[in-house]
Design a protein around this nucleic acid. Sequence first.
DNA 1: CTGTTGACCAAAT
DNA 2: TATTTGGCCAACA
Length: 104
Amino acid sequence: MSSPVDPVRVWTALSLIPEGKVVTYGQLAELSGSPRSARVVGNILKQLPAGSHLPWHRVINSKGHISFPQGSSQYAKQRTRLEAEGVALVAGKINLSLYRWQGE
DNA sequence: CTGTTGACCAAAT
DNA sequence: TATTTGGCCAACA
């Protein structure tokens, strides 16, 4: 029994992530009601309009890394936004046990 | 229809 | 500890 991924639920869950906290793609998938759809969530984020106010930068992968190639403008953007809200990267990596959002 | 791809993940090697 | 492998789901050719 598989439920399709509803982009609206992803956007909603995303909007609830507090400043200074992060979630993984897999976690956002389960918060959206589709526990096995981490990759699909990534695709949905990719398709967000440029002007979106949603905190897409608070989503990282399970290793604590930003899922963009280092040196890309997107990587720089995400990193800058994270650090601006107090999320530190040590050796390019975020400490999940410290910054991961524990849900509501 | 089959095969490939991807802002992913966890287990096995 | 580092890589590879297999699984996942949706979109696309």
